[in-house]
């Protein structure tokens, strides 16, 4: 089995364990083992834009040192936010030797210096470019049977330009995966908008409004479920439907999936009860077979 070093990120160990497990199980079907790093820390969560704020890149670069410690030159991510943070910090030090030197000097206790020589991968483009959607289509055991999905990309996979995994205005990667799995997709104008992100912590109302617009928009186009790649988008769009329903009694709930859950389903992997329990809206209601 081919091994790829894998960086989970904090959320995938707690509220998005379904994302992690479905990804690991699915990749095994393609003879790939996502091998979790022995040691890792939080990615830093939000890429720091201030030019003089190097402190907030330490977390990301330290993880890339951990990748090197395991004798690897690439690391797979699943969480869109971790991908964004790790990749952007990596690019910053790649193009700025002075920053890299300062960060290495700050981390003098580490056995290795970082040489900006790790590639940060994300599973979605890996599926498209390395495994290929046509191969995935051939492996489908349980078709998504024309269930209609609305893809929700959120911000961090598409912006900024340097790290985008697809066209930032007309992305198709999630739609193409769904099609390969036998599902249908609908177009909505909200697919690349923000879900409300961290407003969810102390301004729930902002997120409720976003959730309503996004889910209603998907439903108006005939979608039966949402598919996403970001744990924060998933939390806001799924769990905040509770508050949305409270505020708008006519609101109709809609299940929200990680793309890996649908991939796993398509490959014939059991949709575990533990995965279902992490959803707010019952995900299994839409499967017809």
């Amino acid at each position: 089995m081919k091994k790829i070093a894998y960086y989970p990120g904090c959320t995938l160990k707690t509220t998005a364990a379904n994302f992690e497990e479905s990804a690991i199980e699915s990749m095994k079907k393609f003879d790939i083992e996502l091998e979790e790093l022995d040691r890792w820390n939080c990615c830093g969560t939000v890429f720091s834009l201030a030019t003089d704020d190097l402190m907030h890149h330490i977390a990301a670069i330290r993880n890339l040192i951990r990748v090197k410690e395991e004798k690897s030159n690439q690391v797979m991510t699943l969480c869109a936010m971790c991908y964004n943070t790790l990749k952007r910090s990596n690019q910053r030090v790649k193009s700025n030797q002075e920053d890299l030197d300062k960060i290495n000097d700050f981390m003098y206790k580490e056995d290795l210096n970082y040489n900006a020589d790790v590639d940060v991968l994300h599973l979605l483009p890996y599926l498209r470019d390395e495994i290929t959607f046509s191969k995935i289509a051939k492996r489908v055991k349980k078709s998504l049977n024309d269930i209609k999905f609305s893809a929700f990309y959120g911000c961090t996979l598409l912006r900024p330009k340097e790290i985008q995994i697809d066209d930032p205005f007309m992305p198709t990667i999630l739609e193409n995966l769904i099609t390969a799995l036998g599902g249908e997709t609908v177009e909505t104008p909200y697919a690349i908008e923000c879900c409300g992100a961290y407003q969810t912590v102390n301004q729930v109302d902002v997120v409720v409004e976003r959730t309503k617009v996004i889910i209603d928009g998907a439903r108006n186009q005939g979608a039966e479920a949402i598919v996403t790649s970001c744990p924060l988008c998933a939390f806001n769009l799924d769990h905040r439907q509770k508050e949305t329903k409270k505020k708008y009694s006519k609101f109709i709930e809609m299940p929200v999936f990680y793309f890996t859950e649908l991939l796993a389903y398509g490959l014939g992997i059991e949709f575990k009860k533990e995965w279902k329990d992490l959803h707010y809206v019952d995900p299994l209601s839409i499967f017809k077979n």
Partner: peptide, 10 residues
Amino acid sequence: FRCVACNTCT
């Protein structure tokens, strides 16, 4: 959750 992984504590 504010930890920046600077390792100063260690």
